[in-house]
């Protein structure tokens, strides 16, 4: 019985240790819900808590919404003559007990990243934005990195450590 449990734990650990997924989708607002639910589903094998799931969904929602409303805003679409087919790229990776999430767009980019990341800073008060997106990503994830250049797009890289593997190890 004991060996059986050990084998089960071992199998579980192997399936959890490393996993990766990539998605790309049109930069339209209906896909905000799709993106955060996809990431939530991706991490379920790690048995996250309800709280952890909420944190991850909020952070993903913030990054994806930013790509859609800021990355591909009217100014950018007007300047490039692009319409419709803009994509948001989502890349997730589980390494041991850490979830890595990357959200990327090929939109207008950010000139002053430090300023953009300040709580309450927004370039779109007219759109009812509050400037709390990056602050939420920072509050709900363990690590946040923003890489961006004007007209080169934006990459948001986030990490969150989940409390799962430790208790699997304990069980052994």
């Amino acid at each position: 019985m004991e060996t059986e449990q050990k084998i089960k734990n071992e199998m579980k650990r192997n399936t959890l240790l490393e996993n990766e997924m990539r998605l790309s989708f049109d930069a339209v607002s209906v896909n905000e819900a799709f993106a955060r639910v996809a990431v939530a589903a991706f991490v379920t094998p790690l048995n996250p808590t309800v709280e952890e799931i909420s944190d991850i969904k909020t952070a993903v929602s913030e990054a994806v919404t930013n790509a859609i409303i800021h990355g591909y805003d009217e100014e950018f679409l007007g300047a490039t003559g692009q319409k419709g087919k803009n994509q948001v790229y989502l890349h997730c990776k589980i390494v041991e007990d850490v979830l890595h999430v990357e959200v990327q767009d090929t939109g207008k980019g950010i000139a002053d990243i430090d300023q953009a990341m300040e709580p309450l800073f927004t370039t779109r008060p007219d759109m009812d934005r509050s400037g709390m997106g990056f602050a939420f990503m920072e509050a709900f994830m363990d690590d946040l990195e923003v890489i961006s250049e004007p007209f080169q797009g934006t990459l948001v890289r986030m990490k969150k450590k989940l409390g799962t593997i430790s208790w699997i190890k304990q069980e052994e």
Binding site: S61, M127, D128, R129, S130, M132, G133
Partner: peptide
């Protein structure tokens, strides 16, 4: 069951 910063914008607005 879910709210991101968009909800904050609705309230402040």
């Amino acid at each position: 069951r879910f709210m991101d910063s968009s909800g904050i914008g609705v309230i402040i607005g």
